[in-house]
Design a protein around this nucleic acid. Structure first.
Lengths: 407, 407
DNA sequence: TTCTTAGTTGGTTTACACAACCAACTGACT
DNA sequence: AGTCAGTTGGTTGTGTAAACCAACTAAGAA
């Protein structure tokens, strides 16, 4: 049990313990994806021997991670009916926190990825200590309602640059944090928790989309573009988050999309976030309105959206300009990474019916050859806030340590 | 022996054979990186037991992959002197072919990655059949000079979109090929070869830089940008090539770098290759010259380079404009991927002393936070043509099946 | 009853870990 | 110079854990 918790990153030698752990994880992942599923099918998929599957499954049932479901669906028309296996419900839980201003969300998730309870904190001025204390207190309160079951870990997502290996927040513009040992702060408030994982919000959202998204993504190469106050991307390669050498992979806000364009605080000009963030939309709208006599200056994104829904031509025009620029950057991402899917999250998804086509046209035009197999840009299919589900996805990994071996 | 050749991609269950194969590969990789190295140090690094290392090393010596070097360097001041191990020289070979127009290169490489023999074919009009026949014939001729040693595989790199899994060339503009089963064509001419690997030239070059580059790249996240007639990038993540869903990852020529810029055949405008390829340099030079009275139109890259070396102001200016645009695209790559290194290959490296600073300034300016740890753009450090060494790197993998396990 | 598929049981194989051992070398003390 | 403790490198024999295999039982259909 202890050994399993240990991280096998990169090159690890194989001994019998590691081998068993890996096969255990493979079986768990197979059940997660295919439940309900009989042992025989697991054996076929994993190419493990029937007896090996039986023995590992027995342990997993013992650990209350799997159950034999009484409903005997499936199996051939003849022969003994299979005993189906599923993930056990209501036995193992994990916690999720999505730190953000002005809204920090907490939730309890079961190992199937379903939210069992959730809560929110609205704040503006936030020191790391106080926000962590508040949010973990809420999480503990939710835990109390669930009962005395196994609680594995806490996952936390943060908008900003995060060192996931060290569980530290390097910098967050939204929250005004820098160099915060988030793992230590959380552990102070929840000392009994086994694992704590911290990750950037877009990266976490990408993981959540892979695990629980309705779009069935084929090959686990995904780009999740979170369009909000800033703009960030979470890239997964083979189902694993791309961190980057300085944990800054996917910090795409400063990509050049307009050569010689507007000056940015980064010292350069034409950066993507100047044209594709919420602020950009608001700016375009106010610019258009200022030329129209009798204008009302918009202050929030919702004003522009409401105006557009009411048929305001300027609002619609601003949305189109915005969408077009969002698409340009996504096109670059597609050129470089050739992902199986690009998923967009954030407030933009509320107006996807208005902007989706423009984003796709702007993004998909390039790529001369791959035209038949067209990667499309889709809005998130997650049933709740992506960064919160992302945080949940992070902590799920503490149970499902998913494995890849490549030679 | 047979089982080892089999590819373990993605999820594979572990049985004793796979476990031993993995440990064998780990030991081989450890020796490759640290040679000469004693058994005790291998045991320490891999955390395998001394006895396990001894037993696997014994087999590797038996297979003539390792030798005990007589030179007993290293070891502490006291105690028994270590027996150092190195990769065996002159016992195992592989072939490399870099298909390109107008020059296709072939080489024989030993398992240390050193070129033992090489040859070139200059052609313009090339059917796949004839070029493969010619090049494999040259390779076989080189093989004959090496002697009757173990010949493992052939690696081939091609400029264009390549399906590495199927060893097919999907499309190559340079060669005018499309949908070529390159593996089958090569096998026809060299039926005894065990493995044949095919890959895009930039991707292969990235691998070569990782394996044999003088820049010691820390974390194996590398971007190799091949600037030539077209512009292509090879991205490695954790030492593995990023293929992309449609094998088009790194096809960065059609990234937008100039919003509303020049029209491209892809239907879009402002594509990077219009501003950063060799053609772009030549075009800028001729544009500058056409405004200068008494100009001589340049026809080739070398003309511009020669003029610049001779102190021609227009040539220098054209080079700077070129470099600046190369840098913009690289900056985008750095934003998205945050690699540990960006390496540039192609003719541009010949004038790196003139353009290097401009490329770096243009690429590195963005990235507001990661400023202290600055990723720099460097010219390739490979001692020969990158795509040829890349092809060699591909085939090296058939011997050194390098392993990563992540949980 | 026979056939088919699901799952279990007991024995076999393989490979790694462990510990005791041999090997080779240093240096200090006699 | 000779000897022996101390140290490090590498080998050998034994134990154990895990997956495989083949023969088995279980359960249901034709």
């Amino acid at each position: 049990m202890q050994a399993r918790r240990q991280k096998h990153e990169g090159i690890t030698r194989i001994n019998s313990k590691v081998a068993r752990d890996i096969n255990r994880s493979i079986i768990l992942a197979t059940v997660r994806r295919g439940q309900p599923i009989p042992r025989s099918e697991i054996a076929e998929i994993t190419r493990l021997n029937k007896s090996t599957v039986s023995s590992i499954v027995a342990r997993l049932i013992d650990e209350e991670l799997l159950i034999e479901s009484p409903d005997r669906i499936g199996g051939g028309t003849v022969g003994r009916k299979p005993v189906n296996l599923s993930l056990a419900q209501g036995k193992h839980f994990i916690g999720a926190i999505s730190f953000d201003a002005p809204c920090t969300r907490v939730a309890i998730v079961d190992i199937n990825g379903t939210l069992r309870a959730r809560d929110e904190i609205w704040t503006k001025v936030v020191s790391p200590e106080s926000l962590v204390a508040q949010s973990v207190a809420r999480l503990n309160a939710l835990r109390a309602t669930i009962g005395p079951h196994k609680f594995h870990g806490i996952g936390a997502s943060v908008g900003g640059i995060v060192d996931a290996d060290q569980s530290r927040v390097i910098y967050s513009a939204n929250l005004g944090w820098s160099n915060v040992d988030l793992s230590a702060l959380i552990r102070e408030q929840a000392p009994d928790v086994e694992t704590i994982s911290v990750e950037n919000d877009a990266k976490a959202s990408a993981l959540a989309e892979l695990l629980w998204g309705a779009h069935r993504i084929s090959s686990a190469n995904l780009v999740f573009v979170l369009v909000g106050v800033g703009i960030g991307a979470g890239i997964t390669i083979n189902g694993r988050v791309l961190s980057g050498d300085t944990h800054a992979a996917g910090e795409v806000g400063h990509m050049t999309v307009v050569e010689g364009g507007e000056r940015c605080s980064c010292g350069n000009s034409g950066c993507w976030h100047l044209y594709a963030s919420e602020q950009a939309l608001i700016r375009w709208f106010t610019e258009l309105k200022s030329t129209t006599p009798g204008s009302v200056p918009a202050v929030a994104l919702s004003d522009v959206v409401d105006a557009a829904r009411a048929g305001d031509a300027d609002a619609l025009k601003a949305l189109q300009t915005w969408a077009q620029h969002v698409g340009v950057g996504i096109g670059d991402l597609m050129c470089i990474l050739d992902p199986s899917a690009v998923i967009v999250g954030g407030p933009i998804t509320q107006v996807w019916d208005l902007v989706g086509d423009t984003v796709n046209a702007s993004a998909g035009g390039r790529r001369p050859l791959a035209s038949q197999h067209k990667t499309t840009v889709l809005p998130t299919s997650l049933p709740d806030n992506p960064p919160l589900l992302g945080a949940a996805a992070l902590s799920i990994r503490s149970v499902f340590a998913d494995v890849t071996i490549s030679m």
